[in-house]
């Protein structure tokens, strides 16, 4: 059994316009020491999936069903219907999270020392000195020079990349088994992005933790992940080891995403390709494939565009470990 097994996870938000199906039957597994990337554009359900795992969605505003079993140090835990207090004890200890915008994710009024020490104190009944030493250790680990003195600094005295390092230090202070990184590099300069991803990679091999890396940027995924889940309109549409996905995308949406990455070797004067159209409304999803209205390949499907529009393709394994949700036969792309 895998470290984390998510099966048929559904998250729905009742709104005055109708039921928003943000996550629509998502199934995946993550192993210890593995990085799973979840890729998709805004509104594809990638962040909501992980907020559900963290128990950070409001119970009053959302309906969550399905299962997410974490086989960790705390035993087998069903994360989806854990009591609030139990979930709170796991958050920050067994599962930690880092966020997109390190500028706004740290509290502006407290020193970074206060914030890291607080994260340690809440889960460990130890003296403040022990937590302080741990905070210094973590800051050194994430590559912040002069860590002992920097504890007294406020977030606004750090650059964006340094703040994200502080966030990572804070997330790792209790040696979590699972780290959820929600767009950890999106708000950073490109050179800093690479540093942060490299750091995450190094820390992972040191601490043997599982990482779920949420991003909309397939460029980030290439060097940072082992396996990729592509999400579209609340569903996983393709899942493959990272090399396989780049070499051989099976789903037209993945193909479109890959084609839209700017590349140096594509030659001068060529326009960057884009996927036409908009993602569908999550309230009135079409009966068939949600991507069909934007898809250029429906003519090539056996049964034609009508089949794409009327029947939802199943997530099927085309080659070992490579799943795709598409009526097209594999090699057709």
């Amino acid at each position: 059994m895998s470290f984390l097994e998510v099966s048929d996870l559904r998250v729905e938000f009742p709104t005055s316009d109708g039921l928003v199906k943000a996550v629509d039957g998502v199934t995946f597994t993550v192993e210890r020491g593995e990085t799973l990337a979840i890729v998709g554009e805004s509104g594809s359900g990638k962040t909501v999936t992980n907020l559900a795992l963290m128990g950070l969605l409001s119970k009053r505003g959302s309906r969550i069903s399905g299962s997410a079993i974490m086989k960790g140090d705390a035993g087998n835990l069903e994360l989806i219907d854990l009591a609030d207090e139990q979930m709170r004890k796991i958050r920050g200890k067994n599962i930690a999270m880092i966020f997109q915008d390190p500028m706004s994710s740290l509290h502006p009024y407290y020193t970074i020392g206060d914030q890291i020490i607080e994260a340690h104190q809440v889960h460990n009944e130890v003296d403040i000195e022990v937590s302080t030493a741990r905070a210094i250790e973590l800051l050194e680990m994430v590559g912040i020079p002069d860590a002992a003195n920097r504890l007294k600094a406020f977030p606004h005295q750090f650059s964006g990349g340094m703040r994200q390092r502080v966030m990572i230090a804070m997330a790792l202070v209790n040696s979590p088994e699972l780290l959820i990184a929600d767009e950890p590099t999106t708000a950073l300069d490109v050179t800093v992005q690479a540093q942060i991803l490299k750091l995450l990679r190094e820390l992972q091999s040191e601490l043997k933790m599982a990482i779920i890396l949420i991003t909309h940027d397939l460029g980030v995924v290439a060097g940072a992940a082992d396996r990729v889940n592509v999400m579209y309109a609340g569903k996983i549409v393709e899942s493959a080891p990272v090399g396989e996905l780049y070499a051989n995308p099976l789903m037209p949406y993945t193909h479109g995403l890959l084609a839209s990455i700017p590349r140096m070797d594509r030659g001068h004067g060529k326009r960057l390709s884009a996927i036409a159209g908009q993602p569908p409304s999550l309230i009135a999803l079409p009966a068939g494939c949600a991507f069909a209205p934007r898809c250029n390949f429906t003519e090539r499907v056996g049964g034609g565009p009508d089949r794409c529009k009327s029947t939802m393709p199943a997530l099927t394994e085309h080659t070992p470990g490579h799943f795709a949700r598409c009526h097209l036969e594999g090699a057709a792309l």
């Binding site: 950070l56 709170r88 706004s104 509290h107 502006p108 966030m167």
Partner: peptide, 25 residues
């Protein structure tokens, strides 16, 4: 605010999130 989400993600209780992190700001 994002920093309140961070506070919750740390596993702080709602009481601490409200009193220490929310009210001061």
């Amino acid at each position: 605010e994002d920093f309140i989400r961070t506070a919750r993600a740390k596993g702080l209780s709602e009481k601490v999130v409200l009193r220490k992190h929310t009210l001061r700001a």
